[in-house]
């Protein structure tokens, strides 16, 4: 691990590779977001708000699963907590929206990370079910406490649509850039070592528990941030935010986009945001989610690396063609 430690001082900017397909997708998604903002199409803007929240949410699950090998089947827990805490702070403490959002996100990260930390000794499958157990507990508690109607944001000066959109875009850029940096850092190698073999990583001097917990807190922070943003642009949160289908959402989006790639959550959440907002125009919501489940199964069966795997293979083929002349 000496090699890892010594090379970890590479300056951040040198890690950015503008030919990297992940980075290209990141840039394209920013450009598309700006174009849609300038085009001023309200419905497209609304879909893009879903996209911002979902891509951060999916990246939070992917960070946990792809990098450290920890499986969460209850990612809706930090996501829902972010939304609930933020809305409750505006309602009960009568705090302005921005401090509520910051405190709500941090509280979601603290609670989600702390609960997750109690499960790190379990095998991934069981860890997944243990986290599912907690999201089910929160599902029932929120139903008992706030009923089916849930809670709504209380603010005297609601933010404009433009402010919400640009905030979403900023959060998206910052979160994805942070993930991109982790993706191209030596820290990722430490996490992959933990994922590959806990014991071997421990023997090599990596503090396995510490890094697993750090990733859990990071993942909860991102999921909490996504939930906070989701709660703000929908102005509402209820018990269904903790439901299992909501925990399945980031898993499915990561699979569709491609697990372990930065571009995976971006592409996956773009595809799903369009599907779940466009399909219900013609079909029921049940048919939409039925189709979503089928798509996830088909991709996992036929192309487990997702759309990113396909794009990366095509790019590699193209490169070798150019090299051959």
């Amino acid at each position: 691990m000496k090699g890892l430690e010594s090379s970890s001082h590479t300056p951040w900017p040198s890690r950015i590779n503008i030919r990297d397909i992940n980075f290209i997708i990141f840039l394209v998604s920013i450009a598309s977001s700006i174009i849609i903002f300038l085009a001023d199409k309200p419905y497209l803007k609304f879909i893009m708000m879903y996209f911002f929240a979902y891509s951060i949410y999916t990246a939070s699950w992917d960070l946990l699963y792809s990098y450290s090998g920890q499986l969460s089947l209850g990612q809706a827990m930090p996501f829902g907590l972010g939304a609930f805490f933020t809305i409750m702070l505006t309602q009960l403490a009568k705090l302005p929206l921005v401090p509520s959002a910051i405190l709500g996100t941090l509280a979601a990260a603290a609670v989600g990370g702390s609960i997750g930390a109690t499960t790190i000794r379990l095998k991934p499958g069981y860890q997944g079910i243990a986290l599912l157990l907690f999201s089910q507990v929160l599902y029932w508690l929120s139903l008992i406490a706030y009923g089916e109607e849930g809670v709504s944001i209380f603010t005297e000066t609601p933010p404009s649509e433009t402010t919400i959109y640009l905030t979403g875009l900023t959060l998206f850029v910052l979160s994805m850039f942070a993930i991109y940096m982790i993706h191209n850092s030596n820290y990722k190698l430490k996490l992959l070592a933990i994922k590959g073999d806990n014991l071997a990583a421990d023997v090599c001097g990596i503090n396995v528990r510490f890094h697993k917990v750090i990733v859990l807190y990071l993942s909860s922070l991102l999921a909490g941030l996504a939930g906070t943003y989701y709660g703000i642009f929908t102005s509402h949160a209820d018990f269904s935010i903790f439901a299992v289908p909501n925990s399945f959402l980031p898993i499915g989006m990561a699979i569709i986009g491609g697990i372990g790639f930065l571009g995976g959550p971006i592409i996956g959440s773009a595809v799903v945001s369009v599907i779940i907002n466009i399909l219900p125009i013609w079909y029921s919501l049940a048919i939409t989610y039925f189709a979503y489940g089928i798509i996830v199964i088909l991709i996992l069966k036929l192309r487990p690396t997702g759309i990113m795997g396909f794009l990366q293979r095509s790019a590699r083929k193209e490169k070798s063609k150019v090299a051959k002349g």
Binding site: Y65, G69, L71, L73, K123, P124, G125, G128, P245, F248, I251, G252, I255, S284, A286, I287, Y289, F290, Y292, G293, I294, V296, I297, L300, K301, P304
Partner: peptide, 25 residues
């Protein structure tokens, strides 16, 4: 293999979604 077990869990989770939505339809 933990990776295979995780993939199977996710596939079963997707199956559960499909079955539930199918019954709902």
């Amino acid at each position: 293999d933990p990776d295979s077990q995780n993939i199977v869990m996710i596939l079963f989770l997707a199956l559960a979604q499909v079955l539930q939505r199918g019954v709902f339809i």
